[in-house]
Design a protein around this nucleic acid. Structure first.
Lengths: 211, 211, 211, 211
DNA sequence: TATGAATGAGACTTCATTCAT
DNA sequence: AATGAATGAAGTCTCATTCAT
C-alpha cells in the first residue's frame, strides 16, 4: 500500500508528465461523453492513446482518474476571471459575470461535468459534495462577497447575500441551461444569452437596488 | 391452464396488470437510487419480487423499462395540482406554486429522476429531450400561460412570459436544489423553503408588477 | 559472517554481488510469505529495494529467481550442522537431531519453503523433485548413513535404514508440523517440542534397539 | 443424449444438480492440477463444460468454489471406512487403517488437496485451519479414541493417545508421501506400501504394547 | 549496470438477455 | 404467463516482462 502511494507520488509530482496529460485529456472527453459508468477504461485508453495498463500507472483506479479530472475542472473554474473587483459598479459587474457564467455552462461539453457529477452523487456522495463545494459554492461565495461590499444606502439593499448570489446565478440560467443539458435544444445563441442575462440583471436590481 | 386462459387474454395489454405494476414500482426505486447504469436487472427483479425473465415479458429491454418509468413520472407530474386558475391573484398563485415545486424537487428521492435522466441525456438524447419536454417544459408552459393571462395594466408587465416563468422556477430553487442534489446538504427545512420562495415571489413581482 | 570482506571486491560476476544479495533476500521473504503465484515481481522489487527492471538483470524470469532461492535454501539446509558424528551415541544424536529438525520446520516462516515448493510441484515437477532431493532426501540419507554405522550387536537392529531414518523424521513432526503449517495452531512451545522428540526417540529405540 | 433430458430439471437448489456436479468435478481437477492461483475460472469452465458465467450462478466466487470442493473432500474423507470398532484387535486395526490411509494419500491426485490447501494456508488461514480440523484432525481424533479404548493392562500403555495417533499416522507415511507429493517419485507400489505400514505397526506396538 | 515507464495478455467478475420448461 | 438456468460479452484491474535511457 505504502509502496503504491510512493509510486504514485513520484509520478504525481510531475503534474504534467506528457502521458498524464494525454490520459487526463482522453479521459475527460470519454467521461463527459458517456458518464462515469458509461465510460470504460478501454475506451479511455484508446482515446488517450495509451495502453490500459498505463492508466493504472498514473491513477489508482477509475474513480481516482475521474476525481483527478474534476480536480482540474475545479482549478479551471477558479481561473476563469470573474471580475469581482468591488470598485466596479454593480450593474456591469453582474452582467459581465452572468454572461461569462452562462457561456461557461453552455459551451459545448460545458454542462457535462455538472451532469456527470450529479449522476453519481447518490452513489459517491463525497465526490458530489466536494465538486459542489469547490466549484459551485465557491462561485456563489465570491459573488456573495462582492454583493456584501455593495450593501448600503444608495447601492444595494440585500438581507441575505448568499441567497441573492444564488438567485442571480439561477436567473442567468433561466430558460437556457435545462433545455441544453437535457439535449432538448442546441446551445443557445449569443443573442439569446445576452437577452437572458440582461433580464436577470434588471430583475435583480429591481428587487435589490436600494431606494 | 384452461381456466387461466380467459384472464390472460387481455391482461398483458392492460396498463396496470398487477405484475406490470410491481415491476414498475420496484424498478423506479432501483433506477432512482442507483442510476440507469448502476441499476441491474437482477436487482430490479428482486425489488419487484418477480423473476428476471418476467421483466422481459413486460418490457423489451432495460431501456424500455426505464422509459416506461419516466412516462409514469411525467404523468404523475402532470397530476400534481399546480393551481393555475387564472382567477387567483398572482402573488398567492406564484407563492403556492413555488412552495409546491421546491418541495417536489427536494423531497427524498425527488431530484433523482432529474438527476438520473440528466445522466444519460448525452448517450440517449431522445430520452433526455422527451423528459424535458413532458415534465419541465410542460410546467413552464402552464405557468407561462397563467402569467400571460395576467399581463395587463394594473397587473403584470411581462415581455417574455416563457422566460419569466422559467425565471420564477429557477428563483424558487435558489440556494436549495443544487446543494441537495449534489449531496452537499440535507433536504432543506420547511422554514428555509418558505423563506426562499417568499423571496422569489417578492423579487418576481418587484420586476414584473405593472406600475 | 564474511560478507563485509567480500564487498571490497568489485567482481560483478560474483555470486553475491550486493544487488544480487538484496534481491535474493527480498524475494525469499516475499515468496515464502505469499507463495509463488501470490508474490509479484513488484512486491519483490520493493522488498529488495531495487527497481523491477533490475530483477531482470540478475534473473531471467520469475521462475529463475524462485529457483535461485531454493538453491540457497538447499545450501543453508546443508550447512545446518546436524551432528551425525558416528562416534556419538545413538540416543543423544537422535534426540539432538530431532530437536533441531522440528525447530527448523516450525520456526516462524519455517514451513514456508516446504509449503511453497509443494504448492507448485505439480506445475513445475522438476522444481519440486530437485528440492526434495537436495533438501529432504539429503537429510534422510545423512541420518540413514549414521544409523547404518550403528547397526550391529548391542547397538541397533535395523533392516531398512532409509526407512528408519524417514520414520524418525516423521515421528519428530508428529502432532506438531501439520497443525502449524495449516495455520490451525501457533508454533509449538519449546516444552511441547521437547516432549514430542523425546517420545519419538523412545519409540524409535523401542523398535530398533538391538537386544 | 438420453440422459440429458432428465437433466433439465429445476434443481439448482439441490446439492447435486447436474450442473453443480459438473462444475465441482471440473473444478476439482483443475484446482488440484494447478493449485488455487494457477487455476483460472476460464479453465475451470472449460473443464466443467459450462460457461464462465454459470460458475457464478452456483458459486459466489473462486474461493467459494474452492471451499466447496474442500467440503466435499472432507465428506469423502469422512466416508472412508476407517474401521475403528473397539472390538477389533489393535494390530489388525492399526494395520488396516494405515494401509487405507497411505493409499488415500498416495492415490493419483491424492496428495493434491493437502498440497493445494497447504499452499494457500498462509494467505487464507481460515481455509487451511478448517481443512486441517475437518480432515486431518478428525482422523487423528477417531484413531485416538480407538487407542484410548485399548489402554489398559495387557493391551496398550499409552500416556498421550492424541500424540500416539498422530505418530502412527506419520509413521504410515514414512518414505512414501513426501517423495510422492514432491513429484520425486511415482506413486509407491502396493508392496512398498504394505511393507511400510507393517513396519509402522510393529514400531508402534513395540513402543506402546503393555507389558 | 540500473532504472521505471509502458505494455498487453489475461485474471476475476457482472450483467443484460435468451431459452426451455 | 412466468420462471430461473445459462450464457458470453464486456468491464475493471493486475502483473510479468520489455525497452529506452
Amino acid at each position: 500500500m505504502v509502496v503504491a502511494d510512493r509510486e504514485h507520488l513520484h509520478v504525481l509530482q510531475e503534474e504534467d508528465s506528457s502521458k498524464r496529460r494525454q490520459i487526463l485529456d482522453g479521459a475527460r472527453k470519454v467521461f463527459m461523453d458517456l458518464g462515469f459508468d458509461g465510460a470504460s477504461m478501454g475506451e479511455i485508453a484508446r482515446a488517450a492513446g495509451v495502453s490500459k495498463g498505463t492508466l493504472y500507472v498514473y491513477f489508482a483506479d477509475k474513480s481516482a482518474l475521474f476525481e483527478a479530472i474534476l480536480e482540474e475542472e475545479a482549478l479551471q473554474y477558479g481561473q476563469v476571471v470573474f471580475n469581482f473587483d468591488p470598485a466596479r459598479d454593480v450593474e456591469t459587474t453582474l452582467n459581465d459575470f452572468g454572461q461569462a457564467y452562462i457561456r461557461l455552462l453552455c459551451r459545448p461539453g460545458g454542462g457535462s461535468a455538472i451532469r456527470t457529477v450529479m449522476a453519481i452523487a447518490e452513489r459517491m456522495p463525497d465526490v458530489g459534495c466536494r465538486y459542489y463545494l469547490r466549484v459551485l459554492d465557491k462561485t456563489i461565495n465570491r459573488l456573495s462577497d462582492y454583493l456584501k461590499a455593495h450593501v448600503g444606502p444608495g447601492d444595494l439593499a440585500i438581507d441575505d447575500c448568499d441567497l441573492a448570489a444564488s438567485q442571480f446565478m439561477e436567473l442567468s440560467k433561466a430558460s437556457l441551461f435545462l433545455p441544453f443539458v437535457f439535449q432538448a435544444a442546441p446551445p443557445p445563441s449569443e443573442q439569446r444569452m445576452t437577452e437572458v442575462v440582461d433580464s436577470a440583471t434588471r430583475m435583480f436590481l429591481a428587487a435589490y437596488k436600494a431606494k
